[in-house]
Design a protein around this nucleic acid. Structure first.
Lengths: 257, 257
DNA sequence: CATAATCCATAACGTAAGGTTAGAGTCAAG
DNA sequence: CTTGACTCTAACCTTACGTTATGGATTATG
């Protein structure tokens, strides 16, 4: 049975000595024994436990949770993993939104906020352009995301989009004028609910109510991804897009269930 | 010109009073003026500035960075956004890996570590199974990720995989026996370099050297995603897979450039 | 065997971005 | 004139360690 000093264990495990001290102090990993002088000595069992600790740490579990996982025999690991998965998925989604917003912001800065020609916007794009746009989008955000948005879009015919955006433009302008700050604000959410009602009319109530909430939240993603939806005075507004997407998500989560 | 108290500003901005105190203290957002009694009063300019602050905060910038962004007129915003994008992309990738690992771990726990039949593994899978597997994988990880892995895989013919895995099995077994702890350990990296040499033989040096490093790191992802690559005694080892993927990435980053 | 070089221990402070009291002063309304 | 709502500063709590600081223990070398 091998014995390891703090330094040895730290080295083979790739953690700092301080980390081992900390884990000892909080009861996560106690040395198997101490020398007369109080030196920590770890055995193979401790090495194995450390290996497990590092695995769960790598999965972004908090140290206290790891404590429970390893020490409580009744701990429902599958449940913990699943809820952890949900949290990670949320982070992932959030990061994806941020990445798109950053791209749009960079684009705006580069173009010096150059105005886009209105005729490029809501009429059928020239096919090559549309194709190029799609490919670029896939390149940047992955086909998964793009396809999801496209499904969103396909629910709306061209004319519907034209009508929709005219009515929505007003609401968006009002929201924009509100100095878009807190997406949970009741005034903001009131406007969003109008927005939702208009949107719903054009989705032609497809019967099932559950996908609607999701689709509406997904619309926010579309706003972030496609600058054409958040033009104010023909200028793209990434900050506003980010705000709107959060407002829609919040609305769909709180009001629509 | 409207004036806001801390509470009012906090409410319309959706932040806590403490946050405003903090921003004041660190010079990120000073009130426009103070009353005789020392109460903070904010104007519209401050509201606008707060709006910008929250935008960058939402993009996960540190408060100090936001300070620079807003106060330094020479600040290279595009550059900052780009490097920030790289960081976010790394986080995203990491989270994706963790999600797959969690899935595999859950699967293992559910199956009670049931053995997989060896004939299911490296021989051509029955078509339906392969299709089902692929669809499931797309469902879980997105078509982007799956296609990337498939491109990895397509570089190897069936026979090559068979040979490859036989030779690699040995190395992996040795790595496994090393109590897979620190992927940066020189002994570990030595084994990885052997692993790399073997792998490289079968990739038949496609000329360009840059994609090789990336492809090799991508192989680690494949290990994580497909349990069949990290079977030890016919049992999937998600922890070991995670370890290996990090070791490969580290190797490709430090040794291959 | 003395001494220098490591190694180890505990302790305490610092980090980011606030949350959470605590104690005390300020303001408008009843 | 007191109540209640609001404000101020100050100080400690959080995570998961990193970073000294100080002093004792062990080992290597001359």
């Amino acid at each position: 049975m091998t014995q390891y000093s703090v330094k040895q264990l730290a080295k083979i495990a790739g953690v700092s000595i301080r980390t081992l001290h900390l884990y000892d102090q909080m009861g996560l990993l106690k040395p198997s024994t101490r020398t007369e002088a109080g030196y920590r000595l770890y055995g193979d069992q401790q090495l194995f436990r450390l290996q497990q600790i590092l695995f769960y740490r790598e999965l972004d579990f908090a140290l206290k949770e790891i404590c429970d996982i390893l020490d409580d025999p009744d701990f429902d690991l599958v449940k913990a993993l699943k809820s952890h998965k949900v949290a990670l998925n949320n982070r992932k989604e959030r990061i994806a939104t941020l990445l798109v917003t950053i791209d749009n912001t960079i684009n705006n800065l580069k173009k010096g906020n150059k105005m886009l020609k209105p005729e490029e916007l809501y009429e059928g794009l020239p096919k090559e352009k549309a194709e190029a746009y799609r490919n670029e989008a896939i390149e940047k955000y992955g086909s998964e995301t793009v396809e999801k948005s496209e499904n969103q879009l396909r629910k709306l015919s061209k004319e519907q989009i034209a009508l929709l955006t005219n009515e929505q433009k007003e609401i968006q302008a009002q929201l924009f004028a509100m100095k878009y700050i807190d997406y949970r604000d009741s005034q903001v959410q009131k406007q969003i609910s109008k927005h939702y009602e208009i949107t719903r009319k054009f989705w032609g109530t497809h019967g099932s109510s559950d996908p609607q909430a999701e689709a509406y939240a997904g619309l926010g993603q579309l706003y972030v991804q496609d600058e054409r939806f958040t033009l104010i005075d023909d200028k793209p507004q990434p900050e506003f897009a980010l705000f709107l997407s959060k407002a829609l998500k919040y609305y769909s989560e709180t009001r629509l269930k």
